[in-house]
Design a protein around this nucleic acid. Sequence first.
DNA 1: TTTATTATGTACCAAATAGTACAAAATAAT
DNA 2: ATTATTTTGTACTATTTGGTACATAATAAA
Lengths: 194, 194
Amino acid sequence: MSGRPKIFDDQEVLSKAADVFWRQGYEATSTEDLLEAMGIGKGSFYLAFKGGKKELYERALALRSDQAMARFRRELDAADDPVEYIREFFRRVAHSTRAKHQNGCIFGNAVAELSNIENPMMKRAATHLQGLEALFLDALLRGKKQGTLHSKLEPAVLARLLLNNWNGLGITRRIYPDNDALSELIETQLKVLD
Amino acid sequence: MSGRPKIFDDQEVLSKAADVFWRQGYEATSTEDLLEAMGIGKGSFYLAFKGGKKELYERALALRSDQAMARFRRELDAADDPVEYIREFFRRVAHSTRAKHQNGCIFGNAVAELSNIENPMMKRAATHLQGLEALFLDALLRGKKQGTLHSKLEPAVLARLLLNNWNGLGITRRIYPDNDALSELIETQLKVLD
DNA sequence: TTTATTATGTACCAAATAGTACAAAATAAT
DNA sequence: ATTATTTTGTACTATTTGGTACATAATAAA
């Protein structure tokens, strides 16, 4: 081993690439765009990511997925009231910048863009969203147990409902990138949890 | 006037182009794809659509928007119970083929794909969805007047909620392209109208 | 200091792409 | 029939694209 030292960190450039993909989508992003954002040259890039743009996208999405799931899991476990944590999760959407609103949900974007052109990649994004739904369900079941969830609806159905609300927000926030309007929408949606 | 007769109808080829865009999105669709689907050659294409792929996309989307709005308006006006018509509108989602599920909503797709790369085009799609929301609102107000809508929520908020549910379904139906599962989700969502 | 090893930057390439130019074809009007 | 007009099909082009080849640089180990 040894050899010339790398001038970049895989995680870091993956994160930068993820941001570009998030903003522009998969097809609209050129490798040139990515190289510039990552701050590395072609030589380094194709050595580190032999699969090119496709591998980069997969790994960038996987990174974001792991990060998002870990954060949700961690914060949920630390929360006294799991149902209230779900509320906070949704309310965070209404505390974003306009630029963030325009990006939507990176996984929803992947599902929308790739379902008919890169099915395996779309499925990975879908799996993440199913994982989010599973976390919703976990929170709801705990809420039910500790009595903070009063809804008579089946928790599984409720979790699916929350996932759909989330998916919807990824689009709606771009049509109405206004925190007040989004807040009203979100608070109304959350009534289903009472 | 006169000259060599056209071998195609604008509306027809626009419709065929719309189908391709719907399946693949804007960026992933090449002009070659479009020409093949439309069944015309380059000469005819660039004569009829001087703006190329971009103009084609705009006009294809405009066509679908006009069609969808006209149908909704017509069927809503013909409905005895406008709230029940909204229910039917949503329930139709759960009577689709797998292929249709994978396409999602053409306008939601446009918003998702283009918000950061073709903002004016994204805005047209957004305007359509706002138009859909306006039709929801119209139906809800009529329902309120004739007593078929009992919800205590403000109709405007309810309409926004329905739009978000619609936007969500455009993603969720691709994650769960199963009519039974979607039906359960939709019926639960529609309870907000009772 | 030499060698083995790994990373970097650049020059290069083949394929695909959107779009143009234009000659030929098909019609209506004269 | 000739002409004016519009459409069609094809050949061509310039650009962009993702990706490769490879010489060079920078390090650790021997």
